[in-house]
Design a protein around this nucleic acid. Structure first.
Lengths: 211, 211
DNA sequence: ACCTGAACACCGTTCAAGT
DNA sequence: ACCTGAACACCGTTCAAGT
C-alpha cells in the first residue's frame, strides 16, 4: 500500500510481462527499482509474499478495467452489463499480463480486493433475480470458468497457435472423427467466449425465473 | 515412455506430493532415483521438459481413474456416466496430487494422452445428442470449469479452511450483506460440484433437445 | 549409450554493519 | 527506519571424462 511497495510490484510485473515469470527474481526486481536486493525485504517480505502482492496488483487492475468497461461509473458492476464488463476485463487482464495471470488461480488470495470482485458478481446475480441461497455457488461457477478460460487461452491449452495439430492429434480417435475436422477449431475465441457467457446466463435465468 | 523415464517421473511426482512443487529439483529427483543429477538429462531433457513429462504422467493417471470409475470398462467414457466419472476423476487427481495439479492449467499439453481425454468428452456429448458443430466448444466449456474447480479447491481459492474469514472479509460489502452470512459458505464441496455438473448438463440438454 | 564429478553462473536469504 | 555488501546454502546446466 505504501508508495515504495507499489513501485516494487510494478517493477516485478513489468519484468514478468517482458521476460516471463521465471525472470522475476529478487535481484532483477531490485535492479529495476535501483536498489540493493535486500532493500526489498522490509517492503514485500520474501519472494513468496512478493508473488502474493502481484496477485493483489492484478486484482486492482481488474476492478479498474471492469469499472472502465461498464457504462455508468457509479453503478459499475451492479447490473448485468457490469458482470459482462468484469468477464471481459478478466480476459483483457490475461492478455495484458499472460505470464503473471496464472498466479490468480495458483495462489489463493483472500484479500479485500478479491472480495470486491466477488461482491460485484454477487450484486449482478441478485439484481438478475437469483435467490440469495444460490448466489455464492453461481459466483464460484462463473468466476472459475471465466478465469480458467482466460488462462487456457493465454497458456496455450486451447492450442490457438496450431489448428492443424489439433486436428491431426485426434485423427484416429472415434470422437474426433465423428465430430468432423471442420468443427474442431472455433471461428474465433471472442465469439466462443460470448457463446459460453450466454450459456452461463441461461443457468442464471433458470434460477431467476424458475419455469 | 522408456522404463527409466517413468521411474524419474514417478520420483518427481512423489517429491511434489510430499514436499511441494518447489522441492522438485533436478538434484532431489536424481537423489531419489539413486543417480547423479546429470544422469537425468538424456531421459527427460531439462527441468522444463521434466515438468511437461509430469503433465503427461498426470493425464495417464486421470484416464486410468476415469476408466476405473466408469461402469463397464469397454464402454468407459462413452456415455454420460463416463463423463461424470471423468469429472470426478479430475477432482480425485487434484486431491491426490495437489501440488502438481496446477501444472495441468499452467503448461499447455497437446499430447496423445490429452487428446484421449478430450475424445472421451466428445463421445459423451455426441451420445447425448449434441450436434457435432457444438461439441468442441462445450468440451472446452466443461473441461475448463472442471479443471478450474478442482484447482480452486486444492489451491485454497475457495477458502475452504476458514469460513469465518470468508464472511468477515465481505462484512461491509453490499452484495455480501444482501446475500446473508448463512449462505456464504456451502454445505460441502461435493454437493456444490454435483449441483454445478447438473447445471452444465442443462446446457448440454438444451443443445441435445432444442426446445 | 549411459553415467560421473567438478565447475560456472545464478538464486533466495541471513547477518553484521552503516546512516 | 531504511539500506548496503559480503557470505551461505542452494539451484539448473555445461563440459570433459570415464565405462
Amino acid at each position: 500500500v505504501t508508495d515504495r511497495k507499489r513501485q516494487i510490484l510494478d517493477a516485478a510485473l513489468a519484468i514478468a510481462d517482458a521476460e516471463g515469470l521465471d525472470a522475476v527474481t529478487m535481484r532483477a526486481v531490485a535492479a529495476k527499482v535501483g536498489v540493493s536486493p535486500m532493500a526489498l525485504y522490509p517492503h514485500v517480505g520474501g519472494k513468496a509474499e512478493l508473488l502474493d502482492g502481484l496477485v493483489g496488483r492484478l486484482l486492482e487492475e481488474l476492478t479498474a478495467r471492469a469499472a472502465a468497461g461498464a457504462g455508468s461509473p457509479e453503478r459499475a458492476g451492479l447490473d448485468r452489463a457490469g458482470l459482462r464488463a468484469l468477464a471481459y476485463g478478466v480476459r483483457a487482464l490475461a492478455r495484458a499480463h499472460p505470464s503473471a495471470f496464472g498466479l490468480l488461480l495458483a495462489r489463493p488470495s483472500v484479500t479485500p480486493e478479491a472480495a470486491r470482485s466477488v461482491d460485484v458478481v454477487y450484486q449482478a446475480l441478485l439484481d438478475a433475480g437469483v435467490p440469495p441461497a444460490h448466489v455464492p455457488r453461481l459466483e464460484r461457477l462463473i468466476s472459475t470458468f471465466v478465469i480458467g478460460f482466460a488462462l487456457s487461452e493465454v497458456s496455450g491449452r486451447f492450442a490457438v497457435d496450431d489448428p492443424e495439430l489439433r486436428a491431426r492429434r485426434g485423427a484416429t480417435l472415434p470422437g474426433h472423427l465423428a465430430v468432423g475436422a471442420e468443427h474442431l477449431t472455433p471461428a474465433d475465441w471472442d465469439s466462443e467466449f460470448e457463446a459460453d457467457l450466454r450459456d452461463l446466463e441461461s443457468i442464471v435465468d433458470a434460477f431467476a425465473h424458475p419455469r
